[in-house]
C-alpha cells in the first residue's frame, strides 16, 4: 500500500504543463478559474495532510485551524500595517507551526492517539473559531475586507483569479515535493513505522514524539501559507475560516485518495472536489444541499469499497498498461 510510489518523470512534467495551460482554456471565465483554484487549494491541503495523516497515521482534523491562522495573519498584517502578504504568508505559516507545536507537544506527551487525537484536533478548530468570533480586535462577527487593488503584486490582490491559480499551483508543487522528500527520508521511514505500529516503532528506538511533532510542523506550515493565499483570493477574513467541515473534508480526501501515497490526495481532490462543485452547480439551483447528499454517498461508497484509496485504482490500471506494453 505504501510502497512503489513513483510515476515516471515525463508523465509528471506532462501533467504539470497541462495544469499550467488549463487557465488558457478558461480564459476570462472567472467561475472556472475559481473552481480550478479551489481544486488546487484542496489538493495542497490534502497533500499537506498526507504527511501527518497518511505517513504518520495521525488522524488530524485541524486543517481549518491552521488555514484560519494563516488567513488571519495575512489579513491582519495587510489591513493594519500594509505588510505584504508574501511576508504575511511566511509569518502565517510560522504562527500555524507555533500553534501546532504548542498543542501537539502536550497531546503527544500525554500519549493521546487515534480517535482522541482526532477529536481533540477537531475541537481545536471550533475553539479557535469561537475565540476569533469573540476577539473583536482581530476577528469579530463581521467580515474584514482586504484593500482592493486592480493588480498589485505587493498586496497580492488582483481583479482576476488567474494569478491565484498559478500561485496555488506553485504551492501544490511545493507540497508534493515536500511530501516526496519526507517520504524518502529517514523521518519518512520513521513516520511510516510509527503509523503502522507506534509501540513497536518506539521499542525499535524511534523517537515517536519528536517525529510526530516534525510531521505536524510541516503540515501546519503548508496549510498556514495556503491559508494566506486563501484570504487574498477571497478578499476578506472571517472566523468561519476556522471551518470544521473543511477540516474533515481535507482528512477524507487524504483517506480516500490513498494514505501515504504522494499523489493520492491530489487525485482525490481533483476527482471529488470537482464532482462536488459540478453537483452543486447543476443540482444546487433546484434542490439546496442535494449535492451534499449525493457527495456523501459517493464518499461512503469509496471508503467502503476502496479503503486503500482511489490512487490504487490508477496504479493498477497503469501497471496493467505497462505490462501489456512490455508483452508487445
Amino acid at each position: 500500500m505504501r510502497s512503489g510510489n513513483s510515476l515516471p518523470r515525463s508523465l509528471l512534467i506532462a501533467l504539470l504543463v497541462l495544469a499550467a495551460l488549463l487557465p488558457l482554456v478558461a480564459r476570462s471565465n472567472q467561475y472556472a478559474l475559481v473552481l480550478f483554484t479551489t481544486v488546487l487549494l484542496y489538493g495542497v491541503l490534502a497533500t499537506a495532510w498526507n504527511i501527518i495523516g497518511g505517513l504518520a497515521g495521525q488522524l488530524d482534523l485541524a486543517a481549518g485551524a491552521y488555514l484560519g491562522l494563516g488567513a488571519f495573519t495575512v489579513g491582519t498584517l495587510l489591513i493594519r500595517w500594509n505588510i505584504s502578504p508574501w511576508l504575511g504568508m511566511i509569518l502565517g505559516g510560522l504562527i500555524a507551526v507555533g500553534f501546532a507545536l504548542l498543542i501537539g507537544y502536550p497531546l503527544f506527551r500525554f500519549g493521546i492517539r487515534e480517535v482522541w487525537y482526532a477529536l481533540s484536533s477537531s475541537a481545536l478548530v471550533e475553539v479557535l473559531r469561537v475565540a476569533f468570533l469573540i476577539w473583536n480586535q482581530v476577528g469579530g462577527p463581521m467580515e474584514r475586507y482586504l484593500p482592493y487593488h486592480e493588480w498589485s503584486l505587493y498586496h497580492l490582490r488582483f481583479a482576476t483569479y488567474m494569478p491565484f491559480y498559478y500561485i496555488m499551483l506553485g504551492m501544490l508543487v511545493l507540497a508534493l515535493v515536500v511530501n516526496h522528500r519526507v517520504r524518502h527520508s529517514r523521518l519518512g521511514y520513521y513516520l511510516m513505522a510509527l503509523g503502522e505500529n507506534e509501540d513497536a516503532a518506539e521499542v525499535l528506538g524511534v523517537n515517536t514524539q519528536a517525529c510526530k511533532l516534525q510531521a505536524l510542523a510541516l503540515y501546519a506550515f503548508l496549510v498556514g501559507t495556503a491559508g494566506g493565499v486563501y484570504a487574498c483570493m477571497y478578499g476578506f477574513i472571517h472566523p468561519n475560516f476556522f471551518s470544521g467541515p473543511l477540516s474533515t473534508e481535507v482528512a477524507i480526501l487524504g483517506i480516500v485518495g490513498g494514505m501515504g501515497i504522494t499523489y493520492g490526495p491530489v487525485m482525490a481532490a481533483i476527482l471529488l472536489v470537482s464532482t462536488r462543485e459540478f453537483l452543486r452547480a447543476n443540482l444546487g439551483g433546484q434542490l439546496e444541499s442535494f449535492y451534499l447528499v449525493v457527495y456523501s454517498v459517493v464518499l461512503i461508497l469509496i471508503a467502503l469499497f476502496r479503503p486503500q484509496g482511489i490512487a490504487t485504482f490508477v496504479r493498477g490500471a497503469y501497471d496493467r498498461l505497462l505490462s501489456r506494453m512490455v508483452k508487445e
Binding site: 434542490l287 451534499l292 456523501s296 464518499l299
Partner: peptide
C-alpha cells in the same frame, strides 16, 4: 459491519460520510 476489519481511519471516513449525509438530508 463492513468496516470492522478495516483500520480505524476507514471507519472514521465512513461515519464522517454518514454525518455529512444526515446533515445534508436534514437541510434538504
Amino acid at each position: 459491519d463492513r468496516t470492522l476489519r478495516q483500520r480505524y481511519v476507514t471507519q472514521i471516513a465512513v461515519t464522517v460520510g454518514l454525518m455529512t449525509f444526515l446533515r445534508a438530508l436534514a437541510q434538504l
